[in-house]
């Protein structure tokens, strides 16, 4: 191993122990959502945002709140409703009749970790305001531009049950989320553990493990993680297979894909793979890192045709076929 990569590997191994402590701390409260908590951590490291789809009662809010406590950051929950306005999100100018001046009142978006609950229930203009803030990491109120705090993580949720009276996120906007997670019910053993922890009236205290500055340092380290050319080619093969499946002996998928993944998908997949390698304590990315996180990165970026919907083929089926076909390096 190259000495530079060796050094990065050593630092990542050391840093991953801190992350394991963090996961352990969160695990005191959250049972059976290892997948969700790890992905939240990856998004935090890779400076990405997460869209979560899951039925109510799966500890989505609790997971995010616990994560926020463990990393000693400011957490804000936003419940999206149809009557929400952009100003309710980003803030507004308030007129003070005493001095006749307008003062800026910052909105709840000025937090490190935002939980945008049921984002598909708010009208498009509110969604756009949030998504613009996610992209630009700043908001403009009146004439002034305010930079959002660092780190800044948005976790948006969508309820898959209630679709009536909702405003589905446009595909172009969904593309801004690094990961889309589908979370499901815990198993019986996990749910019993949940009962023992949550239904006994005990309050579990979560201690700070790291702070926002440390998160930023870990991000810098994560960017140093080595990605071999073969891994980059593998990532590109996966993304290109969503655009031109026939070139990868997946002719059967061609009529099912309306739009493949964009170049943003390649970037997000590489960043997410690095974050995955980081959590695993490695200073280099392997094909397994790409494959483990690939579905979460690509499932919301492949737009299927009506033909696919008629055949009950979802984007997940298509992405899985692509992963099963593309040879790992």
């Amino acid at each position: 191993m190259d000495t530079t990569i060796q050094e990065v590997n050593r630092k990542v191994k050391e840093a991953s122990t801190i992350l394991n402590d963090l996961l352990r701390e969160i695990g005191k409260v959250i049972v059976g959502q290892q997948y969700l908590v790890e992905r939240l951590l990856m998004a935090l490291l890779a400076d990405g945002h997460v869209l979560i789809e899951g039925v109510p009662g799966l500890a989505k809010t609790l997971s995010v709140r616990t994560l926020s406590r463990a990393v000693n950051t400011h957490f804000q929950r936003l419940q999206f409703t149809p009557d929400l306005l952009p100003a309710d999100l980003i803030g507004t100018l308030v007129y003070n009749p005493k001095d006749g001046q307008f003062t800026t009142k910052k909105g709840p978006i000025f937090a490190n970790i935002i939980l945008a609950d049921e984002i598909n229930r708010a009208p498009s203009k509110v969604q756009s305001a949030l998504l613009e803030a996610m992209q630009e990491k700043q908001v403009t109120i009146g004439e002034n531009t305010f930079v959002l705090p660092k780190p800044f993580l948005v976790l948006a949720t969508q309820n898959p049950i209630e679709q009536e009276g909702t405003y589905p996120l446009p595909e172009a906007q969904i593309d801004r989320f690094m990961l889309k997670l589908i979370i499901s019910y815990p198993n019986k053993k996990e749910e019993k553990e949940i009962l023992e922890r949550m239904a006994m009236g005990r309050e579990i205290e979560v201690h700070h493990v790291i702070g926002p500055d440390q998160i930023l340092e870990l991000r810098k380290l994560m960017h140093q993680i080595y990605v071999d050319e073969k891994i980059k080619d593998y990532i590109l093969d996966l993304v290109f297979a969503t655009r031109e499946p026939q070139q990868y002996k997946l002719e059967a998928l061609k009529p099912l894909i309306s739009y493949g993944a964009s170049p943003r998908a390649s970037i997000m997949l590489m960043l997410a793979s690095k974050a995955h390698a980081f959590i695993r304590g490695r200073g280099y990315v392997t094909p397994d890192d790409v494959k483990q996180i690939g579905m979460d990165v690509l499932r919301h970026r492949v737009i299927v045709t009506y033909e696919a919907e008629a055949e009950e083929m979802t984007s997940e089926h298509i992405v899985k076929k692509i992963f099963d076909q593309i040879e790992v390096p």
Binding site: M1, D228, Y284, T286
Partner: peptide
């Protein structure tokens, strides 16, 4: 894995 993906130097 290390030989393939951890850079040159193997």
């Amino acid at each position: 894995e290390e030989a393939k993906f951890a850079g040159p130097g193997f």
